[in-house]
């Protein structure tokens, strides 16, 4: 483009530094390949690649800053307000007598057709929730718990009242629905005389079962603070007082944990006598 002489011949130091940088880069790349070939090691691989790219960056940077002129150029700016006659010409081209946009009636009909197509295209989205599955309201209200469902431990063993000693928190799951997201519950044994408010789902000699899901955002309230009778949510630090029917005492949760009514069956195992006292987990619009 230009036959003008550019910058003065580079000082040899600059050339040397650039070449050195690229050599370092090549060394890094080779180092990476060798590390990989020798069995791989995350730290060495990362360090080698970093060295390779640092070398590349340094070389290019010195080149761009020292061997070519930086700055000193100006480019004109046409502005973005087109001349009025240019605008008028474009507008005229668009609204010529035979232009489609002048046939209002046809356009309205076309608009109707396109709208109908657009709305119709939304219908298949409903398939995202397969038709044979429960609707949200129903699915959110119902859990696998129900009358007669046995309580299992995380290991899949049925639970007896004696398996829940004082001071322990035992995670329990419904038989036949251990993977359900809304089912996890926990059992603890408290001293009944310390109840300030009786558990809404009742208790078996101090043994109470509550939903494990925080009523704020649904995280498992697995942090049990023995002695204080409180459980804590790891996500947003809501805590619930089990002595007061799992009422929220601090943090952003506003509702109590739903309780699970339980009884002991003839074989001595714990069984639910119904579903949770309220839909478990976070709140939603149609929650009763």
């Amino acid at each position: 483009m230009s036959r003008r002489p550019r910058v003065a011949p580079a000082p040899s130091g600059v050339n040397r530094r650039i070449i050195l940088s690229f050599l370092v880069s090549a060394a890094g790349a080779i180092g990476f390949a060798v590390t990989y070939g020798l069995g791989g090691h995350t730290q060495w691989e990362g360090a080698c690649l970093a060295v390779a790219f640092v070398g590349l960056a340094t070389g290019l940077a010195i080149w761009g800053r020292r061997l070519v002129p930086v700055g000193g150029y100006v480019e004109e700016h046409e502005g973005f307000v087109p001349p009025p006659d240019e605008q008028a010409l474009t507008a005229a081209a668009l609204s010529a007598p035979d232009s489609p946009i002048r046939r209002r009636g046809l356009l309205a009909a076309l608009g109707l057709a396109l709208t109908a197509l657009g709305v119709a295209a939304l219908f298949p989205l409903r398939s995202l929730l397969p038709w044979d599955r429960a609707r949200p309201l129903r699915a959110r209200r119902d859990t696998p718990w129900g009358p007669g469902v046995r309580l299992l431990t995380a290991g899949g063993q049925p639970l007896r009242p004696g398996d829940v000693p004082a001071g322990a928190l035992v995670g329990v799951f419904p038989e036949g629905g251990t993977d359900a997201g809304d089912a996890p519950a926990f059992a603890v044994r408290l001293q009944p005389e310390r109840f300030t408010r009786p558990p809404s789902a009742g208790h078996l000699d101090g043994l109470v079962v509550y939903s494990l899901l925080c009523t704020h955002a649904g995280c498992p309230v697995r942090l049990y603070l023995k002695g204080t009778g409180r459980v804590l949510c790891p996500c947003h630090q809501s805590s619930f007082n089990l002595f007061a029917d799992a009422a929220p005492v601090a943090g952003p949760a506003a509702r109590r944990l739903p309780g699970l009514p339980v009884a002991v069956d003839a074989d001595g195992y714990l069984r639910a006598t119904g579903d949770f006292t309220a839909p478990p987990g976070a709140g939603f619009w149609s929650r009763p």
Partner: peptide, 30 residues
């Protein structure tokens, strides 16, 4: 007013690209 894309700015921009990759791989490995 400034530098032209070629050669000055493209060299420096490529240098920045390489530098971004260097930092990312350094973190990714270390």
């Amino acid at each position: 007013v400034g530098s032209r894309l070629y050669p000055s700015y493209s060299l420096r921009s490529l240098a920045l690209f390489a530098w971004v990759l260097a930092v990312l791989f350094a973190l990714g490995g270390l």
